[in-house]
Design a binder for these strands. Sequence first.
DNA 1: CTGAAAGCGCTAACAG
DNA 2: CTGTTAGCGCTTTCAG
Lengths: 335, 335
Amino acid sequence: MAFRGDRPRIGQVAELAGVSATTVSHALNGRRPVSAETRQRIMDAIAELGYRPNVVARGLRAGRSLTIGLVIPDITNPFYPVLARGVQDVLGPAGYDEIITNTNGVRDLERAALDKMISRQVDGVAFAVFHTHADDLRPVIDARIPVVRLGGRQSLPGVDLVHSDDEGGARAAVEYLIHSGYQRIAFICGPAAEGPAAERVAGYRAALAEAGLGAARNMVVHTDFSRAGGAHGVEKLIRQRKRPDAVLCANDMMAIGALDAARERGLRVPEDLAVMGFDDIDAASLVTPGLTTIANPAREIGMACARLLLDRIDGAEGPAREIVIPTRLVRRQSA
Amino acid sequence: MAFRGDRPRIGQVAELAGVSATTVSHALNGRRPVSAETRQRIMDAIAELGYRPNVVARGLRAGRSLTIGLVIPDITNPFYPVLARGVQDVLGPAGYDEIITNTNGVRDLERAALDKMISRQVDGVAFAVFHTHADDLRPVIDARIPVVRLGGRQSLPGVDLVHSDDEGGARAAVEYLIHSGYQRIAFICGPAAEGPAAERVAGYRAALAEAGLGAARNMVVHTDFSRAGGAHGVEKLIRQRKRPDAVLCANDMMAIGALDAARERGLRVPEDLAVMGFDDIDAASLVTPGLTTIANPAREIGMACARLLLDRIDGAEGPAREIVIPTRLVRRQSA
DNA sequence: CTGAAAGCGCTAACAG
DNA sequence: CTGTTAGCGCTTTCAG
């Protein structure tokens, strides 16, 4: 059991150095001048005692905890560790640490997580969820804690938003397929047009329309956001009278499932069926053939989010900002 | 900028409910009886004000922060998010949150991270590193903060240790290969016998010795812990006079590289060359053929670590404990 | 069953 | 350049 009694306090340093606690504090924080000689005695005392300032006490006094909260569905989903790393790489050097909470996408857990962040006096919150009800963020906003939302569409009033260009990415994917000579391009989507998938479908349709190819209604199939879902989507598509010659999936796991189904059915990729994914998770480069996909730059999103947060913590006022991170085509063998 | 003035304090709740702060505190923490009627008034006041107790202040007073520190090389390495999730799933319900710090395996950053954890008054530390010098943990131990080390071999005095059964896993892998009829089994190892690789080589040798197959010296090749390393390892092995018919790799990424090289060389897997990995990262089930591997149960390690930590925080005394988490053979198509 | 007062470790006035 | 004092928000003696 940790006994704080064992840890030296600022007062002990002061005593050993023969000065007041105030002076030690200032020597440490540089908020007012301390003579070189005194400073030296203080540093010696600190080294001798192994003193480390208590950030909790400092935070209580200062009204800031140097902590930010990251609320995400699941750190185990490969998108989020990269995002978290981006956040940390910006915030860490500024002295902040992060508390990460997984909500599994459950609304009650999201609310509980936000409550906890308030209780913990975090200086900012980054919040990545599908079902964002403005009400759920109310307590955090009322507590005057800056919030940045990650992903999602319509910006909530007073809440900054960072997301990738899902629509543009899907559009680029379709343009690339058309440019490569494919004509009948299908889209394998999630159950409904949930989350980012909505923008991705929009981009898909827009690109087809612009190319004058139109989108046959049955060229968009709905399954779920999983490997099995992607396989299922392909099965459905190749049972149709006019088979697609290319398929864009709402995410990479689905695209990997599409590759499974193609292999299963003896279709050559990309000759018989081109396959594209979205996100560029690590696995995209591991499968065979390598998956051509649209990179969803998690790290950049995290970094942009962190910068926004720092800005707001430093008192930046003004209306809610929206930052769109560009996506990028990653060519491999599958299309 | 967050202004704490906006957040209701316990005193305001007390005032609104017409009681003292002491009573509010007790109503919240249940440390002494509060009449039903008073409690109700307090709860109403809390709801009306949207009061949330300040965990930082509580922590300062109580000498514990309800926070634990997780020091790892890189959250982006797919092993750690799963481990972190295991930790959180045990610690979360107990009221703890985690601060995760990435060290990139750099010793100075490791030391800095530990220092920071002391400053932040964490109630426990989980520490995953290769280069563990006992001295680096000294400050944490002196601060009476329970530490659990993740992975690594010789236990440090006073430091609990959780790791998977690397030697047993490698042994099981080799036994499985022998049982499947393979005779010339190679091992692709990291640069030196670093980290867990050392135990894995040991298990490999032990299993061969027990089977009376001996280990030809040139059947262990050293490369690096990467996909390219694994490919390179296979290249080296097949240039030898007597080729191996099976290869066990120190981790899955190397094994995936081995699959690359086999495909490149036109070797059928597993007919011409069986390939096994170690860890069972997600990618193992995504490649073709699916990778037969030894599951390194990150989640279980995290959970065991968390339980150990809780125990020590609750004051459990006694000598350093060592918990070994069993590994498990996962059969797919590559062997 | 309830309150008053002290104090966790630190820093920001306010003095000198 | 340095010290004294008060107080961040909470819990915990001690008192009733």
